[in-house]
């Protein structure tokens, strides 16, 4: 018999290293042609940090996205980053990048102010030019300002940025501490069909609705949600590194025995983005990378209960576990 059921799961995810103390730094250099180079120490694991950090720098500098080149490949030449983990890069590297770009922009404004005989605070930057507010005719191109800075004013147009949430030591008795930058939120809905003869669970529909604070690049956020959801689906239904726990014999040693989801395993997915801006994050952004992997398991387990009335308290919901649970009902 095939029974259908639905389930939900909700939750929160902290942005940044647990307990803080994880710095990221950035450097923005304005080039002679008016473009920019952003140097950061974090890695692109596929999440797209080069893309979104370039977007943030371009926003501050009034440039096109394509005008910001990103360097992150060599530790020798990049400022400190504690790394690409803990859903931290959008927020922490983002803040460092915005600060670095603002500092570079400040130098442009100082030099442009001298050329245009205006106060730096009266200047705005747009489309590769620095304008005097309210007077579209008084402007200098960024490349001209860099030229003047370099050859007349003896100035380097480089901005540095740094962000770190201070380390918060937990109280050993109460655990009191301030362990995160901000929290993102997630809610998920799963619809499953359980075959009570074979124990197989098929996920028919999965809706993920996650809070990115501000989606710097919505398609990349969607990619994180979809990818995380499928990883969570694998954890819910098929993955177990030690299937004969605690025995380590017969541990899977290839990707056929350790099955991760393939194209054939994925249901109808809906990835939705919510934007509840963080107070301190760059443009309100929050971390999104890890959040998305957490809800499929409980949502699916709750849907299985709705379908066949049994609770599974151990993952994954393999056919064997489902059948055993039905038997002991």
């Amino acid at each position: 018999m095939k029974n259908r059921g639905t389930g939900i799961a909700i939750g929160h995810y902290p942005t940044g290293q647990n307990g803080g103390g994880d710095p990221s730094q950035a450097m923005v250099k304005i080039q002679p042609d008016g473009s920019a180079v952003l140097t950061v120490g974090s890695c692109d694991l596929g999440q797209g940090c080069k893309t979104i950090l370039a977007q943030m720098a371009a926003e501050v500098l009034g440039m096109e996205y394509e005008q910001v080149k990103v360097i992150n490949h060599s530790v020798d030449n990049t400022p400190m980053s504690s790394g690409s983990y803990a859903s931290r890069v959008t927020y922490v590297d983002g803040k460092a990048t915005v600060e670095a770009a603002e500092n570079a922009r400040e130098i442009l404004f100082q030099v442009a102010g001298e050329i245009l005989e205006a106060s730096p605070s009266d200047l705005i930057i747009e489309n590769g030019k620095v304008f005097v507010k309210g007077d579209r005719k008084r402007f200098k191109t960024i490349s001209k300002i860099v030229e003047v800075a370099t050859y007349e004013k003896h100035k380097q147009v480089v901005g540095l940025g740094h962000f770190m949430k201070d380390f918060s030591k937990p109280d050993p008795e109460t655990g009191e501490c301030d362990p995160f930058c901000t929290l993102s939120w997630g809610v998920s809905f799963a619809e499953v069909e359980v075959d009570t003869d074979t124990g197989e669970v098929e996920v028919l529909r999965f809706v993920s609705y996650y809070d990115a604070g501000k989606a710097i690049n919505p398609m990349l956020v969607e990619g994180q949600i979809q990818g995380g959801s499928v990883m969570g689906l694998g954890a819910a239904l098929m993955e177990d590194l030690h299937p004969y726990y605690p025995n380590i014999e017969h541990q899977p040693d290839n990707l056929s025995d350790y099955s991760i989801p393939t194209t054939m395993d994925i249901p109808d997915f809906e990835a939705l983005i919510y934007e509840c801006p963080s107070t301190e994050g760059p443009y309100g952004a929050k971390g999104i990378g890890e959040l998305s992997a957490n809800y499929p398991s409980p949502a699916i387990i709750n849907a299985i209960h709705d379908a066949i009335g049994v609770w599974l308290t151990e993952l994954p919901a393999s056919p064997e576990k489902v059948l055993r649970a039905l038997e002991s009902q």
């Binding site: 990619g223 979809q226 194209t263 054939m264």
Partner: peptide
């Protein structure tokens, strides 16, 4: 059809939706 055609290729990042 796309799912069947790509079923021999694993991806751990995207969840396949954007690949399809």
């Amino acid at each position: 059809d796309v799912k069947v055609g790509l079923s021999g290729n694993l991806c751990r990042c995207t969840g396949y939706t954007k690949i399809i």
